[in-house]
């Protein structure tokens, strides 16, 4: 009885391990997959594309986005939440806009994050976060930093 129980336990552990490794593998595969690579585009196109994402987010929800920009963070006193952003500039460099992002693995700020204004490249899934008042904002979820 003990032997049967121990074998079942081992098989169960192996199954859980294989499941967890396959999910990690799947995450790795999906991490490399990108639906929209903004790093391949000119600055004019990137700015226009991000403008489209901000004004018509529903067209991009669920897509994996790769983008390069300047790192920025902001602490919202009301929601007690720190937001991270990837900021890009237009061709005249007078206008800038950005997308908020959430990292795939929890990180401590500022230790595990780049310095403000430094260049970053991220990959993540585009989403639209709705707030309680119904107004929302676009955000890149499960973002990973690319070196």
């Amino acid at each position: 009885m003990y032997k049967v129980f121990s074998r079942i336990t081992i098989i169960a552990i192996l199954c859980i391990f294989s499941l967890s490794t396959s999910s990690v593998a799947a995450e790795n595969i999906s991490a490399n997959h990108v639906d929209l690579d903004l790093t391949r585009m000119s600055s004019t196109m990137v700015y226009s594309m991000v403008f489209q994402m901000v004004t018509e987010p529903q067209k991009f929800v669920g897509k994996r986005i790769k983008m390069k920009g300047a790192f920025s963070s902001y602490y919202d006193e009301e929601s007690k939440r720190r937001f991270f952003g990837c900021v890009i500039k237009d061709a005249l460099a007078c206008c800038s806009q950005g997308l908020a992002f959430e990292t795939f693995k929890p990180r401590k700020y500022p230790k595990d994050f780049p310095s403000e204004g430094s260049s970053i490249t991220i990959i993540g899934r585009f989403d639209y976060e709705k707030e309680e008042d119904g107004i929302g904002f676009p955000i890149i979820r499960n973002a990973i930093f690319i070196k």
């Binding site: 004019t44 196109m45 700015y47 226009s48 403008f51 489209q52 004004t55 237009d90 061709a91 005249l92 007078c94 206008c95 800038s96």
Partner: peptide, 19 residues
């Protein structure tokens, strides 16, 4: 929040045509 940016875009048409 970005008056200078708005003015700059309107005066030089940086991105208007692509938005």
């Amino acid at each position: 929040a970005n008056v200078a940016g708005d003015v700059c875009t309107t005066l030089f048409g940086s991105m208007s045509i692509l938005t």
